[in-house]
Design a protein around this nucleic acid. Structure first.
Length: 847
RNA sequence: GCCGGGGUGGCGGAACGGUAGACGCAGGGGGCUUAAAACCCCCAGGGCUUAGGCCCAUGUGGGUUCGACUCCCACCCCCGGCACCA
């Protein structure tokens, strides 16, 4: 092989000066990462090392689906966070492959959505031109980092051959009654006359024109994910997922138990005084959800959300102006501000009264924006004595506060200067006085249930999934609106509904979706009655694209079905899914929901898509999050150029625990870089001598540790173990034996596939180190050390360490320990009350 | 405010309740070299000590234990996420 001089062999004047090692040692050339990496990339490509044909996929004996979250192909290119995540997943996949499993590791592109659309608008490029070029660049970079990606099974969510099936999934849900059209709130910029995403609203104002953003309700498509809330929650118990992710999902679903209670509205003009609930049962009824039905005797007023439909009906003429005014003000806030703004309580009285079903007393009905229409019933019973928010409100508006729970040391008359939210004993609650709150909860609901005024109820924080987007860059929702037939599904054989190339996709002041301006496109005929009809002009949410992509990968070469039944049975559910916790709730929840729904509809025979999920950590730089404004963003290309992909990968994995993240320091890469140079040198100068038994012991302990840790994504300590082992191989300038270094080459392979392939070849092997189960096995007997170190403590303080043979008995160890000078001195003349002995670890003399 | 993750040398980070600081970076000393790079060897938390060694030290304060970075309680700080969830 030709040897090209490295840059370092030229001195300052440009004269060629071969390195000493190269001169002395004819067979040891320098490690040239760029040549090696290019060579192996080409070989893998030519030989199809990482790709499966359809037959191979069908015939795999030990299928292992190794999935990572596919990237959004931005114009900036791959960033370090992507590379970190993909490398961590790739190391795991390569490791599994080397133990003999058939690992399928696909990658694709999540390329629809608001970011592309906005970027395209800013640059004046059409997304249909922008995205392909971004994808080309991403593909180049992804190949460069040496991932084991099967490029024959890639997906691009913006390709009609992909979104055809995204639309198909919408139709399956639509037909099953899981997709429905109803009103939902959106952020509305009255100046741009357009809908804004939450992130386009900055401090309550439109990010473009700074006009205050309003809230509007428009008809949109929703997936009824809440139907699945209980199952989505229950399955979390057995999924092998990162704890943090599971908890995030649990909180997001937010199950709470309580009761739905009815508060009859009193007819206008009813005077004060106790009235039996039965007398007003026929009238209007306000339903509230509460987790504290035990406190109903303390409910001194009712609050409706400003948007609550009953507000219109209950408000009396005298208060109408004020109420209308308040409702307008609430609507003027955008979706985020409504929730974020000051904690100051605001609200107005409607003039109406309702009956507390427990006490029979009339209580006022207010409206206030601290009550949310989206949660529960959009109305609450306010118990200022035992809920701090209600307490604050009552104080602001001079409403009565009643104590109905007495904590330790309290009685019915103990005044409240803040809400008492803990447990206790019922007071001021009629027949329930004296009961524990836990018992009263059930008792009160049962009692009111007899009069049809309550029922037990489980409520979820989870909302239905709004999938409508009044934008351009997404798959059209495959529905046709017909005056006579209503919304009709586009027949499946007419999919995909192709997104037309429209020159002007910019939201404009017409206030309608970009597609609604393309008359030629949306005019069509009703598939049912053939009347003139109109296509749905909203596109769907990108989370729908990414909600099923893992089903598509193995079947990406099937043009006539979204996923092949047989292939899917063989490869799914996904064995290991690795991704960021920023998608802990939405993406993962939606994927689970779609899988569950498709399962129930008979399309899949499993209901959870990801058996194991691991969230990776975040890479920061110099102690701070990377951001353009800080100017501390790592640009990967030049680093790979200088050090090679193998070194970069190794460094990223060495930085810190994969599931936590790490702090990227530019100088730190020198460690892994030097390690690979030394490995190169050691492998190429290996001798044929037999392995040294002591080195062999270390080797087997290293294999054991690596095998265990690569399965658990504990990469940083695994890399450290390999470094330690290489240090042993080279200590004192010794030459390693081939049998000592070859297993190390194999263990490095998941991290640094290119150099490992090259060394594997140079050590005399044909074919790829990734073909065949080359992962080394360890031998317990060889791994065990004969001489071990025992810590000797006196009163728990270390006084010596002694070396003994592994088999040494407790008596022997104690004896040797006592004879140590320093130990003897600390024991001198003292009475030993106890000796703690931990086999193979330590002896502790307690005085 | 709530949820999650953290706080260990100059720095990144290691440590099934059992020798705190593995591995690496940066640093210092030495070897090889005309020189440099590379490579090899050695030193390196702080304080005290002539040495042998001793004391202090894992955000703070308590506790459990023969023994605590690790477990429990209270608190402080940093990072990420969520936002009045009835």
């Amino acid at each position: 092989m030709l040897r090209f001089p490295t840059l370092k062999e030229f001195d300052l004047l440009g004269h060629f000066r071969p390195s000493r090692r190269a001169m002395e040692n004819g067979d040891t050339e320098d490690y040239s990462h760029s040549a090696i990496e290019q060579k192996w990339r080409e070989r893998w490509e030519e030989r199809g090392t990482n790709s499966y044909t359809r037959d191979e996929l069908g015939a795999a004996e030990q299928p292992y689906y190794n999935l990572m979250m596919f990237p959004y192909p931005s114009a900036e290119g791959l960033h370090v966070g992507n590379i970190y995540a993909f490398t961590g997943a790739d190391v795991h996949g390569r490791f599994r492959r080397m133990t003999g499993e058939n690992v399928f590791e696909p990658i694709g592109f999540d390329a629809f959505g608001i970011h592309s659309e906005n970027f395209a608008l800013k640059q004046g490029v059409h997304p249909m031109d922008l995205i392909p070029s971004n994808i080309r660049n991403f593909t180049r970079q992804l190949r460069r980092i040496g991932g084991m990606f099967d490029w024959t099974h890639s997906v691009d969510t913006t390709d009609p051959s992909y979104y055809r099936w995204t639309q198909w999934i919408f139709l399956q849900l639509f037909k099953a009654g899981l997709a429905e059209r109803r009103e939902g709130p959106v952020n509305w910029c009255p100046s741009c006359k357009t809908v804004l995403a939450n992130e386009q609203v900055i401090a309550g104002r439109c990010e473009r024109c700074e006009t205050p953003v309003e809230q509007r309700r428009i008809a949109q498509w929703f997936f009824r994910i809440t139907e699945y809330a209980e199952r989505l929650l229950d399955n979390l118990d057995w999924l092998d997922w990162s704890d943090s992710t599971r908890k995030a999902q649990q909180n997001w679903i937010g199950r709470s138990e309580g009761g739905e209670l009815c508060f009859p509205v009193l007819p206008a003009g009813t005077s004060e005084g106790a009235i039996p609930a039965s007398e007003v049962l026929e009238g209007l009824m306000i339903k509230v959800f509460t987790t504290r039905p035990d406190t109903v005797f303390g409910a001194t007023y009712i609050v409706l959300a400003p948007e609550h439909p009953l507000v219109e009906k209950v408000t009396d003429p005298e208060h109408r102006n004020e109420v209308d005014e308040y409702r307008k003000r609430a609507a003027r806030k955008d979706l985020v501000a409504r929730k974020v703004e000051s904690k100051e309580k605001s609200g107005v009285f409607t003039g109406a009264l309702a009956l507390n079903p427990a006490t029979g007393n009339p209580i006022p009905i207010w409206i206030a924006d601290y009550v949310l229409m989206e949660y529960g019933t959009g109305a609450i019973m306010a118990v200022p004595g035992h809920d701090q928010r209600d307490f604050d409100f009552a104080h602001a508006f001079g409403l009565p506060v009643v104590r109905v729970v007495a904590g330790p040391g309290d009685d019915a008359a103990t005044p409240l200067d803040e809400a008492y939210e803990s447990d206790g004993v019922m007071v001021n609650s009629g027949e329930f006085d004296g009961l524990d709150v836990v018992d009263a909860k059930r008792g009160i609901v049962d009692k009111l249930a007899e009069q049809q005024l309550a029922e037990p109820r489980v409520n979820f924080r989870l909302h239905d999934w709004c999938i409508s987007r009044q934008r351009y860059w997404g798959p059209p929702i495959p529905i046709i609106h017909c005056e006579r037939c209503g919304p009709v599904a586009v027949p499946e054989d007419q999919l995909p509904v192709v997104l037309p190339r429209v020159a002007n996709f910019k939201p404009d002041d017409s206030g309608v979706s970009p597609l609604a301006r393309d008359e030629e496109w949306y005019r069509t005929r009703c598939p049912t009655c053939d009347d003139p009809a109109r296509r749905e002009t909203d596109v769907s949410d990108t989370f729908l694209d990414s909600g099923w992509y893992f089903l598509r990968y193995p079947s990406s070469d099937f043009g006539d079905r979204p996923f092949d039944a047989e292939i899917t049975r063989a490869w799914l559910p996904v064995e290991t899914y690795i991704g960021g916790n920023e998608h802990a709730v939405l993406h993962l929840m939606y994927s689970r929901f779609l899988t569950m729904a498709l399962h129930d509809l008979g399309h899949l025979d499993f209901e959870e898509p990801f058996t194991k999920f691991r969230a990776h950590g975040l890479i920061i730089r110099d102690g701070a999050k990377m951001s353009k404004s800080r100017g501390n963003v790592i640009v990967p290309d030049p680093i790979i150029e200088e050090y090679g992909a193998d070194t970069f990968r190794l460094y990223l994995m060495f930085l810190g625990p994969f599931e936590v993240g790490g702090d990227y320091r530019d100088e730190g890469i020198q460690g892994p870089y030097g390690f690979l140079h030394r490995l190169w040198d050691t492998a190429l100068s290996a001798t044929d001598a037999p392995a040294d038994p002591e080195v062999e012991g270390k080797l087997h302990r290293t294999i054991e540790q690596l095998t265990q840790q690569l399965g658990e994504l504990q990469y940083n300590t695994a890399v450290a173990a390999m470094m330690e082992y290489l240090n042993v191989l080279r200590t004192g300038g010794r030459k390693a034996a081939r049998a000592e270094v070859e297993p190390l080459v194999v263990m490095v392979a998941p991290f640094c596939p290119h150099i490992a392939e090259e060394l594997w070849e140079r050590l005399g092997h044909e074919g790829s180190v990734f073909e065949g189960a080359h992962w080394p096995a360890w031998d317990e007997n060889k791994a065990r050390e004969d001489q071990i170190q025992i810590a000797v403590q006196v009163n728990g303080r270390l006084r010596a360490t002694i070396a003994v043979v592994r088999e040494a008995s407790r008596d022997t160890v104690e004896e040797i320990a006592r004879r140590d000078d320093n130990v003897a001195r600390h024991l001198d003349g003292a009475q030993i009350s106890r000796v703690v002995y931990v086999p193979e670890k330590l002896v502790n003399f307690v005085l």
